[in-house]
Amino acid sequence: MSADVVPLRPKGGPPSLDPMLSLTASGMNSVNAVILERMQSKIPLIPALAGHLISGGGKRLRPMLTIAGAELCGYEGSRHHKLAAAVEFIHTATLLHDDVVDGSELRRGKEAANIVFGNPATVLVGDFLFSRAFELMVEDGSLKVLKILSSASAVIAEGEVDQLVAQREIETSEERYLSIIGAKTAALFAAATRIAAVVAERSEAEERALDEYGRNLGIAFQLVDDAIDYDSEAAESGKGRGDDFREGKMTLPVILAYARGTPDERKFWEDAIAGFCTEDEDLARAVELINRHDAVSATRERARHFAQRAIDAIAGFPAGAARSAMAQAAEFAVARRY
């Protein structure tokens, strides 16, 4: 594949996810039908709990990447609909498990499933959705697709465990942080996009290009998510503001503010991450210190770097609506305030 560097959008109108939504609308209707069908069970609690999250207004960006990637590859079949649903089930299962691990109270702006239904049911329904995802993969019949998505599932779990181990460790490095988000978030973005090239029977080079697009987009997306938690100008993100702070998560804004801080500021961060400063006034001070050291803007700048890498990764594909929508999705990931 020959490739040209594709610049991020010049200053002008804000980037939007609308081109991606338009590009994938028809395919996502089919994906949503699969999701609705496969989340059903003769045990009423299962669709009730799964539907609480699945119908909760998420962007569904990961399955959209599978649909968009297939468009980019010129695929005209329908295999990718079930596989995109499998991707969404994997993602939803991890969210359900995460909320139990974190003790989250909010998800997408409403009570988290673990608060409504309890921890045991939430974990078990997460397991159910994982199982449904693997049923869909097996039905597709491609060992290559199965390997990509099953490997991603294992990597996600490793990333979540690594994040748990790093929790409340003030000396967590930026390198380790990037490794964690590369596993827990970017791995599924990469797999979701790569499988589109597999079902389209495109070359290994094109598979790798879509993998790189998804991986870099996923890192950019998570960087911005972590910035939003401390961004006083951002809209409500749908989770409890300050959750990362109270849980002692070493995200990049904290890592940068700690590295740039005075001894007194560093002492505050050590106490806060250890769990000794978790009140609202402590969060307010944390936001003030992060703003003082431009840690949110620095985090967004790093996200911009990864978004550009995502855009460059697909530069060898033909110009058109699919490539343009995927490029603008990367720009949107950086610019979004929610």
Rank of each mutant, 00 (worst) to 15 (best):
R38M: 06
A190F: 07
H81W: 14
D226R: 12
Y75I: 07
I115R: 13
L23M: 02
R107W: 13
G126E: 03
D244Y: 01
S78E: 12
A48V: 06
A335D: 12
H293K: 12
L146S: 08
E331N: 05
V334I: 13
M28P: 11
R194D: 04
F117A: 10
E135Y: 01
G218W: 05
A84G: 05
K147I: 07
P44C: 14
D229P: 04
G109N: 06
L21F: 12
L223P: 03
R60G: 06
K110W: 08
K249E: 01
E281I: 09
D226F: 05
A205G: 10
E160R: 13
S30F: 12
S203D: 13
I46S: 12
S55M: 13
P19G: 09
C73G: 05
L8Q: 04
A154M: 13
P15K: 00
V87A: 10
E247F: 01
N29S: 15
F306P: 01
T24F: 10
A190V: 01
H305N: 09
L83H: 07
S179P: 06
E233Y: 11
L256G: 07
A121K: 06
G51V: 09
A257K: 08
D229H: 01
D243Q: 08
S22Q: 14
E301H: 12
A315S: 15
E105Y: 08
L49T: 02
V296G: 09
E160H: 05
F128R: 03
V165R: 11
G248V: 05
K110G: 13
V155R: 15
P318M: 09
N29Q: 15
A93L: 02
S26M: 09
Q328L: 13
S232Q: 14
G275H: 09
S237M: 08
G77W: 10
F134E: 03
M20G: 06
A48C: 09
A200F: 07
A335F: 12
D18T: 07
E158I: 00
F317I: 06
A50S: 14
F130Y: 15
Q308G: 03
M20P: 08
D226A: 03
S55D: 04
S151P: 02
G248Q: 10
R241I: 13
I255R: 09
A93E: 00
Q40D: 10
V6M: 10
H80S: 06
A183W: 07
D211L: 06
E288F: 01
L83Y: 01
R266C: 00
K42S: 15
R215G: 00
L210M: 09
S237P: 04
